[in-house]
């Protein structure tokens, strides 16, 4: 384990060589907004919200998958970054039907919270208004594809924490969809263990406990980190 020294937003930071920019920043108390990242689950760098500027690199880099290096100069906030982050959010809001007023996750939604943080007071792009299904066939949980942002957190926890592989992404592009098994009603899945980790992982109101109504759906994300730490490090930190 070798340490690396870098600066993040002008602040001197030291981090292990295996650390990502996001981890180094979080340790140093610097907040980088994220969306597809989830503590305890491996990162995919898909949502592009955590993009940061690194001196000497022309491209913007995702903080969640980019490793620190010696002498790296990172900027996590700039007018340009804020503009791009806000646009990314607007694209998401326009893509499917995120109607906060009638959402189980209203008030407990990472997408919504991010919109507030980034000052997104309206969406400049035309709403697509697709018609996606709501899958209510599972005895315990529901899935509203209209609220899905395809971050694939549920897929990752289902594969890598629970190990069941029930969830995956089907199709591609804007027609991508989270599926259970062979794209069958969730309630008919042969592999779902009903563990509920996907529901815990979901940042929006797409996956929810049955019976939750508007604004009721809170999640306990620390559970996931707890399981992973217990499994990998044999440390049970409740």
């Amino acid at each position: 384990m070798a340490a690396r020294t870098l600066t993040i937003d002008g602040k001197q930071v030291s981090a292990d060589e295996s650390a990502t920019i996001l981890e180094a920043a979080t340790d140093a108390g610097i907040n980088i907004p994220t969306l597809c990242h989830l503590d305890g689950v491996y990162d995919v760098g898909a949502c592009r919200i955590c993009l940061v500027e690194v001196a000497g690199v022309a491209k913007l880099l995702p903080a969640c998958t980019t490793r620190v290096s010696e002498g790296m100069e990172v900027k996590t906030d700039s007018e340009r970054l804020r503009k791009y982050r806000r646009m990314t959010l607007e694209l998401l809001f326009a893509e499917r039907n995120h109607v906060c007023a009638v959402c189980v996750a209203n008030g407990h939604c990472e997408l919504q919270a991010l919109a507030y943080t980034l000052g997104m007071d309206h969406v400049r792009y035309e709403y697509c208004f697709p018609r996606w299904e709501v899958d209510n066939t599972h005895p315990l949980f529901g899935m509203d594809h209209n609220r899905c942002i395809l971050c694939a957190r549920c897929v990752r926890v289902c594969w890598h924490i629970e190990g069941a592989g029930t969830k995956n992404v089907s199709g591609r592009g804007a027609r991508s969809q989270i599926i259970s098994d062979l794209n069958q009603p969730w309630g008919t899945s042969d592999t779902c263990t009903k563990c509920g980790k996907c529901v815990m992982a979901c940042p929006t109101g797409a996956l929810f406990d049955k019976g939750a109504t508007v604004s009721e759906m809170e999640r306990d994300r620390t559970k996931l980190e707890f399981i992973v730490t217990a499994r990998e490090k044999k440390q049970w930190i409740a």
């Binding site: 809001f93 039907n97 109607v99 906060c100 007023a101 009638v102 007071d121 309206h122 969406v123 709403y127 208004f129 697709p130 018609r131 209209n146």
Partner: peptide
């Protein structure tokens, strides 16, 4: 634009999905 319906089309726009 005053309120969610004006800002996002909100509940009235649910028919757009049809």
């Amino acid at each position: 634009a005053f309120g969610d319906c004006a800002v996002t089309a909100n509940v009235p726009a649910i028919r757009n999905q049809l």
